[in-house]
């Protein structure tokens, strides 16, 4: 543990994580047309910062997270760009050379925590495993550490001896969080941490993540298709559309003054209990085919502001305000939407 504290104080300057032009494609074999799930993405996360990543289903959020922890399925490949973690490039190295970073420095709460645990091993064994692999805590103390971790996420320490099927959904999600923070990572990726949980448990889980971050000071990437769910938690939000980040800004700025039509429509579609359902805006149309994305702006097919230019050229991600970037030719008009 002291090793991590040292590293923390030594490296305060510069981003914890810096992603440049990252592209991750899926293909079955060489002849297959690749799915461009992540296509030229840039962003940074500082220590202690929470970066929220939103976007509709299939836009590449999980692929981005899996790229960072280098656990893409066999069909997925980082084809371009770099991932700098504490200054070290980890995106292009062979998987076998980033094993030391995995879980010890970057860990992840996977989408679908209901299947986060091996059904034939106890929860405790699985939380203990990364401690052993990375030799974080001396062997004799691991048992105690596992119990501490479970207490940290408001679970009974006895849960360690239980099998996953004996836990409720909310308990599993919390146990998955305990597993993710076992090695006190510097960066935690939380992929849809609240999806499939009921509302009360959702709030609990989000509070817990916030508290753990205050405790451990890790940088956090929170992924969700639900902007409302992560708005409060995030310092900064990146909006992803069709494999690209189309807007990124501090959470409040994004909420008050979005500069990309997609973000604006997402905000309008947030469910407000006072608004009758027929007045809730939905975004017409379907997301682009990531095997054959449109050559211009990927949102052009669904965008109320689209012009000829949008279909011909791809809008670059540009600075549009303080710490605020958007990729839209007509971002000045977004406020009128």
């Amino acid at each position: 543990m002291s090793k991590q504290i040292q590293e923390r104080s030594a490296d305060t300057a510069g981003a914890l994580l810096s992603v440049q032009n990252l592209s991750t494609y899926y293909s079955e074999d060489e002849t297959d047309v690749p799915v461009r799930a992540v296509d030229g993405v840039n962003f940074e996360i500082a220590r202690g910062e929470t970066y929220g990543l939103v976007g509709e289903s299939g836009c590449g959020k999980s692929t981005l997270g899996l790229s960072l922890i280098r656990a893409l399925p066999p069909q997925g490949d980082i084809v371009d760009g770099e991932i700098r973690f504490e200054g070290r490039e980890i995106g292009q190295l062979p998987k076998s050379e980033v094993k030391d970073v995995q879980w010890a420095d970057i860990s992840m709460i996977y989408q679908g925590a209901q299947n986060a645990f091996n059904p034939v091993k106890t929860v405790g064994d699985q939380i203990r495993e990364p401690l052993r692999v990375h030799n974080i805590v001396p062997e004799g103390e691991r048992e105690r550490r596992v119990r501490e971790l479970l207490e940290k996420v408001n679970l009974q320490p006895d849960v360690a001896e239980q099998y996953p099927h004996e836990l409720s959904g909310g308990m599993k999600q919390r146990a998955a969080i305990a597993m993710a923070i076992a090695c006190e990572p510097d960066l935690l990726i939380a992929d849809e941490p609240t999806t499939a949980l009921d509302v009360i448990v959702q709030a609990e889980v989000l509070n817990m993540l916030q508290q753990l971050q205050d405790d451990l000071n890790f940088g956090m990437l929170v992924i969700s298709h639900n902007l409302a769910a992560i708005m409060k938690l995030s310092d900064r939000i990146g909006v992803m559309y069709g494999g690209k980040i189309v807007e990124s800004a501090p959470a409040e700025t994004l909420y008050d003054a979005p500069e990309h039509p997609y973000t604006a429509l997402l905000l309008q579609s947030l469910i407000d209990p006072r608004r009758p359902p027929d007045q809730v805006e939905t975004i017409e149309g379907t997301p682009p085919d990531l095997r054959d994305p449109p050559s211009g702006c990927r949102f052009a097919g669904r965008c109320p502001l689209a012009t000829e230019q949008c279909r011909d050229m791809e809008p670059p991600l540009e600075v549009v305000g303080e710490a605020h970037e958007a990729a839209c030719f007509h971002h000045e008009e977004v406020s009128e939407l």
């Binding site: 879980w103 299947n115 645990f117 091996n118």
Partner: peptide
Amino acid sequence: ENYIKIAESKGLSERQVLFGH
């Protein structure tokens, strides 16, 4: 399954993931 991907990202080798998980 998720728990296989998780085992892999815990830093285990392929063989450990296959035979251990």
